[in-house]
Design a binder for these strands. Structure first.
Length: 217
DNA sequence: TATTGCCGGGGTCAATCCAT
DNA sequence: ATGGATTGACCCCGGCAATA
C-alpha cells in the first residue's frame, strides 16, 4: 500500500545501481523520467477491476482465474473478506482448499489493514465484470461452450486481446491443451501445445483462420 | 549510440478440482 | 476413490523500446 503514497519527485531523485553491469562503465543514475512514468502507472492501476486486486494480494491458491471468478460472483472486496467458507465454496471452481486459504488470509488482521490502506489510497474495490448469469441462459454468444487454447505469437494482436475477443464471443480460454479443447489457435513459434493438439486430433487455427472466425462472429 | 530491463512468450510440474 | 483436466507457482529467454 505504501506504493500508492510515493510521489513523482521521490522516485525521480532515487539513485539506482545497475543490477547486472554488462559494462565496466555502468554507473548509478537517477530514475528521472522512469520515476514519473512509474507514478503515472501506479495512479492508473487504482482503476483496475477487483479481479486484479484479488490476484495481486497473493493469496495462496488464488491466481488470475480464481481472482476473476471471485470478483464476478462476490462483486466487492468486502464480500470476499467477510464471506464464510461455505459461501466462498458456493462460488464455481472454489473448493474447500481455496476457500480455506482465502479465509486464512482474511482472518489475519495485518491483511485486513493492508486492504483498508489500499482502499484509503483510492484503489478500486469493486468489480465491473458482468454478473454471473442464471443457469438457464448460462451459455451465450456464438462460441458458447467452446474451449480455446492460444499458443505462439500472433502478429496482429496481443495474446490478451485475442483472449478478450474470444471471451466476448462466449468462448472459454484455457492455458493447456486437453481433449476437452475444441480449437488451438497457433501463432508463429508455437511449441509443445501444437504438438499435443496434433496428437489429440484437435482442430488448429492459424492466425488468418482465427481472424476470420472472430471477425465473422 | 550504448545500455538496460520490460514485455511477451515458452515450458514444467505439483496441487487442486470435480465428474465418473 | 480415482484419474483426467485445469490451474498456480516457478523458471527461462530474447527482442527491442525507452532512456541516458
Amino acid at each position: 500500500a505504501d506504493i500508492y503514497h510515493l510521489t513523482a519527485s521521490q522516485l525521480e531523485n532515487l539513485v539506482v545501481a545497475p543490477r547486472e553491469p554488462r559494462s565496466e562503465r555502468a554507473v548509478p543514475r537517477k530514475l528521472g523520467k522512469v520515476g514519473r512514468n512509474v507514478v503515472e502507472q501506479i495512479e492508473r492501476s487504482k482503476r483496475n477491476d477487483l479481479s486484479r486486486l484479488i490476484y495481486a494480494l497473493g493469496i495462496r491458491h488464488v491466481g488470475e482465474k480464481a481472482g476473476a471468478t471471485l470478483a464476478r460472483y462476490l462483486r466487492t472486496m468486502q464480500a470476499v473478506l467477510d464471506s464464510p467458507v461455505e459461501k466462498l465454496q458456493s462460488v464455481p471452481d472454489i473448493g474447500p482448499v481455496v476457500a480455506a486459504s482465502i479465509r486464512l488470509f482474511a482472518d489475519e488482521p495485518r491483511n485486513r489493514e493492508l486492504v483498508a490502506r489500499l482502499a484509503d489510497a483510492g484503489v478500486n474495490m469493486t468489480s465491473q465484470a458482468p454478473e454471473p448469469v442464471p443457469e438457464s441462459s448460462e451459455h451465450e454468444g456464438p462460441l458458447a461452450g467452446k474451449a480455446f487454447v492460444l499458443t505462439g505469437t500472433l502478429a496482429s494482436m496481443s495474446r490478451e486481446e485475442a483472449k478478450a475477443a474470444l471471451e466476448r464471443l462466449g468462448a472459454r480460454v484455457t492455458a493447456s491443451v486437453s481433449k476437452k479443447t475444441d480449437y488451438l489457435v497457433a501463432g508463429s513459434d508455437a511449441g509443445s501445445k501444437l504438438e499435443k493438439a496434433r496428437q489429440l486430433g484437435i482442430e488448429t487455427l492459424d492466425e488468418d483462420a482465427f481472424r476470420a472466425l472472430i471477425m465473422r462472429e
